[in-house]
Amino acid sequence: MRKPTLHDVAAEAGVSYATADRVLNKRGGVAKKSQTRVEAAIAKLGYQRDITAANLSRRRLYRFHVLLPNAAGGFFASLRQLLSEQEEAQRKARQAITITPVPPFDPTALALEIDRAVGAGCDGLCVVAVNHPEVSAALGRARAQSIPVVTLVADSAESDRDCYVGIDNRTAGRTAADLILLSHRSHAQRGLILPVMGSLQARDHAERYAGFCEVVADQMDVLPPLETGDDPTRLNQLLTAALAAEPGITGLYNLGAGVPGLIAALDHRGNDNFAGRPVVVSHELCDATRKAVADGLIDAVIDQKPAQELSQALAALTALSDGLALDPTAGQITPAVHFKHNMPPQPAAGPNKGA
């Protein structure tokens, strides 16, 4: 059965196509009686406007601002690269994407860039949120101007945004805990686990850490987390010192980025002939983690599928800009866990050199 068209609505209401179009687009200049007949015809026929076709006919341009941490490599570099590589697809979808780099874990800088994007004029914001009042206030100012807000990877309070796109970070932390518990089944003593993260101020890191501790706290000893700012050099220095100071560490959970620093520290431990090697679970599938898994330095990688996240974030912004209701499951990403023998094929080309 074909969908009713605006021509069908006009015929049912006994008005011209132009009149039906004026009512639909709320352009005024239509007698109240005719407006009522058109609205009744729309309801009777179940007419639904084709937003995509309408926007194409009006040559609408979606101006989206995407604010991403300016990490030199890894996950967020891959998101920036993916956006650049999709320029042709964005053009066809009439999306003009402005990518703004923001210092990681800097709420003042992020709030400033949100305000700048709003001031420059935009149809939607995609933001990697930081859990801070300045950021919450800036997002509130954007939404007060009816600008849709999508949080990506790291969420904010529900009142600050329209949609979150990403994995359930607390569940991801629990999954990492399950993996480490499985690896310790044969241990006679309680394991000693060291979490490594960028910052507890980042909601994604805080939620992963909380989920991890919920599962392992009663069965293992968890050291205070290393907060590295996702800086590989700092991660290398702090982790090398921690492993030297506490050779009894049996597990590492890297719930942030800075993977090159993680690998360098693990290499150093091996070269210094420390006894044993901790079980290592890390986030973000990239060239560096692929090689580390193959080399036996990392045991499992949790992949949150950046290409899928980006696609869903832009789709959500487009729908919100068109005034459409989102599916309740929109933005939900199911992560994958990769080991040495189930590693997916290497992409032909890609930007994820290191996380």
Score class of each variant (00 low, 15 high):
residue 1 M to V: 15
residue 5 T to C: 07
residue 6 L to Y: 08
residue 14 G to W: 07
residue 14 G to N: 04
residue 15 V to R: 07
residue 19 T to W: 04
residue 21 D to N: 11
residue 25 N to S: 12
residue 25 N to A: 10
residue 25 N to C: 08
residue 31 A to Y: 06
residue 41 A to C: 04
residue 42 I to P: 05
residue 43 A to E: 12
residue 46 G to Y: 04
residue 53 A to Q: 11
residue 53 A to M: 09
residue 56 L to S: 05
residue 56 L to I: 05
residue 57 S to V: 15
residue 59 R to M: 10
residue 62 Y to N: 11
residue 64 F to I: 10
residue 66 V to E: 04
residue 66 V to S: 00
residue 69 P to Y: 08
residue 74 G to F: 04
residue 86 Q to F: 05
residue 87 E to P: 00
residue 88 E to S: 09
residue 92 K to R: 15
residue 94 R to T: 13
residue 94 R to S: 15
residue 102 V to A: 03
residue 108 T to H: 14
residue 109 A to F: 00
residue 116 R to G: 06
residue 118 V to M: 11
residue 119 G to D: 08
residue 124 G to F: 02
residue 126 C to F: 09
residue 131 N to G: 08
residue 131 N to R: 15
residue 133 P to E: 07
residue 133 P to Y: 02
residue 134 E to K: 15
residue 136 S to W: 12
residue 136 S to L: 13
residue 138 A to F: 04
residue 139 L to F: 07
residue 144 A to T: 08
residue 148 P to T: 09
residue 151 T to L: 07
residue 153 V to K: 03
residue 154 A to T: 12
residue 158 E to S: 13
residue 159 S to N: 01
residue 162 D to P: 02
residue 163 C to Q: 08
residue 163 C to Y: 00
residue 164 Y to M: 10
residue 164 Y to I: 11
residue 172 A to D: 04
residue 173 G to W: 01
residue 173 G to V: 03
residue 181 L to D: 07
residue 182 L to T: 15
residue 183 S to T: 14
residue 185 R to Y: 07
residue 188 A to F: 06
residue 194 L to T: 01
residue 201 Q to C: 01
residue 207 E to D: 09
residue 209 Y to V: 00
residue 215 V to R: 08
residue 216 V to M: 00
residue 216 V to T: 01
residue 218 D to M: 05
residue 218 D to K: 08
residue 221 D to N: 14
residue 222 V to K: 07
residue 225 P to M: 13
residue 226 L to G: 01
residue 231 D to V: 04
residue 236 N to E: 14
residue 241 A to I: 10
residue 245 A to L: 06
residue 252 L to D: 06
residue 252 L to S: 04
residue 254 N to F: 10
residue 257 A to E: 13
residue 260 P to A: 09
residue 260 P to T: 10
residue 262 L to D: 05
residue 266 L to R: 00
residue 269 R to T: 03
residue 270 G to V: 06
residue 272 D to K: 15
residue 279 V to E: 12
residue 283 H to M: 15
residue 290 R to V: 09
residue 290 R to I: 10
residue 293 V to C: 06
residue 294 A to S: 10
residue 294 A to Q: 15
residue 296 G to Y: 00
residue 301 V to S: 03
residue 303 D to R: 08
residue 304 Q to D: 03
residue 307 A to H: 04
residue 309 E to R: 14
residue 314 L to V: 09
residue 314 L to Q: 09
residue 315 A to Y: 07
residue 324 L to G: 02
residue 328 P to W: 12
residue 351 P to E: 13
residue 352 N to L: 06
residue 354 G to H: 03
residue 354 G to M: 03
